[in-house]
Design a protein around this nucleic acid. Structure first.
Lengths: 200, 200
DNA sequence: TTCATTCTATACCGATTGGTATAGAATGGC
DNA sequence: GCCATTCTATACCAATCGGTATAGAATGAA
C-alpha cells in the first residue's frame, strides 16, 4: 500500500446512510440519495462498500458488537434475576438512547418479512440477542426452578415487550433532540415481567 | 352505469399484492411484478386502486375491520380479566392463522420507521388496537385497582409480547401449509402476563 | 522522480420504477 | 340497433434504480 486510507468519507457515508435507512427504510432509500446527502459520489460509496447491501452490512458490523456486548455485560447473572433483568432493560433503553438511528433500524429490520432482502443480515443479530437472554434464564433455573423449559418463551416475550415499549417511546419523542427513557419505565416493565399485574 | 362491475380482477390483484407485500415488503415489490403475477396489466390495477399506495390502502380496508372486530369481541370484559386476556390472545393468534399474509404485513408495517411512506396507513390500525386493549384494562380497574394509571403500559406490553410471540411462530412454521398456534402458548403467555414468572 | 496504489468524480449503462395516453373490447340501458 | 360506461391491453413516458467504465487526483514507497 502506498496511500494511507482516508476513511473520513467512509464514515460520512456510513452515518448518512444509517440516518436515512433509520428514517425511511432500506428499500426506500436510493444510493444516489445517500451520496448526494453525503456530498460525495457513487464510485466513492461503491469503493468502500461494494454494493448497497454491503453498506447496510457495514452499518451492522459497526454498531451491533457494542450493542450486544453492552447487553451481554448487563445480562451477567450473579444470583439475582431481577437485578439482571433491570440491568438488561436499562442497557437496552440506554443503547437506544445512545444510538437512536441504529436502534430504530434494528427494530424495524427485526420485524421485516422473512423473504425480505435484508433478512440474512439481521438474522444473526436476532439470534445472538435471543441466545443472550435465553442464557440468562437458563442460569437462573437453579434459583427459579419453575423457569425450566420456558427459557425460549421468556426470552422472546421479554424482547417483544422491550421492543414495543421502546417503539412507543421513540415515536412519542420523535421530535425531541434526545430520547429519554426514565428509570420508572424500566422498573415497571421488570416488575410486571417478574410478578405480573398485581404489583403495579 | 351500464356495465356491471367485474370485481374478479380486483380481488385477484388484491390477493396477489397482499401475498407479495407480506413476503417481501411493500417497497420491494414493483407494480409490474404484481400485475404479471396476477396475469393482468397495469391499467387494470390503476383503474381499481388509483396508485400503488391505494392498493395497500385497499388491503387494509378489506382485512383490518374483521381483524379488529374479532379482537373487540374477544376483549369484551365480563368481570374476569384473565378470561378476557385469553380470549384476546386466542383471537390474535387465530386471526394470524386465518389470514397469515395480512397478519404478517400488519406486523412488519407496525415496526416500520416513522417516516416510512406507509406509516400513515398503519397508524390508525395501531391506535385502534392500542385503544381496544387500553379500554379492556380500564374496565378491569374496579376489580384490579392496582392497574389504574398503567393501562397504556399494559396494553403496549401485551401487544409487544403477542407480536413477538407470533413472529417467532410465523418464522418457525414458515415452511408448513398452515401456521399452528397451540392453546398452550396462549395460556403460558396470559399466565405469565398476569402472575409473572413464578407460576410457570 | 518514478511508480504503484488508493481514492474520487463525470458520465454513462441497461433495467426497472410508478404512472399514463390511447384505443379497443365487453356489457347493460334504451 | 345504439350509446354510455366499464374494463382491459399495448405501448409508451420521464425518472430513478443499482452499478460501472474511464480517467484523473492524491499520496506514500522506492
Amino acid at each position: 500500500m502506498t496511500k494511507s486510507s482516508n476513511s473520513d468519507n467512509r464514515q460520512i457515508l456510513l452515518q448518512t446512510a444509517l440516518s436515512l435507512f433509520a428514517r425511511r427504510g432500506f428499500s426506500s432509500v436510493g444510493v444516489q440519495e445517500i451520496v448526494t446527502a453525503a456530498g460525495l459520489s457513487k464510485p466513492t460509496l461503491y469503493h468502500y462498500f461494494g454494493h448497497k447491501q454491503g453498506l447496510l452490512s457495514a452499518i451492522l458490523a459497526t454498531y451491533s458488537p457494542a450493542f450486544l456486548a453492552r447487553l451481554e455485560r448487563a445480562a451477567d447473572y450473579q444470583g439475582d434475576l431481577i437485578a439482571s433483568l433491570e440491568q438488561v432493560a436499562a442497557a437496552y433503553f440506554e443503547s437506544a438512547q445512545a444510538e437512536p438511528d441504529f436502534f430504530y433500524l434494528m427494530l424495524s429490520m427485526n420485524y421485516l418479512p422473512a423473504e425480505h432482502e435484508t433478512e440474512p443480515l439481521i438474522q444473526p443479530f436476532r439470534l445472538q440477542l435471543q441466545n443472550l437472554l435465553e442464557t440468562l434464564f437458563i442460569q437462573a433455573v437453579p434459583q427459579h426452578g419453575n423457569l425450566r423449559g420456558h427459557e425460549v418463551f421468556l426470552a422472546s416475550s421479554l424482547t417483544g415487550s422491550l421492543n414495543h415499549q421502546a417503539l412507543a417511546l421513540l415515536k412519542r419523542d420523535v421530535a425531541r433532540t434526545g430520547v429519554s427513557f426514565s428509570g420508572q419505565e424500566i422498573h415497571q416493565l421488570v416488575k410486571h415481567y417478574m410478578y405480573g399485574i398485581y404489583v403495579l
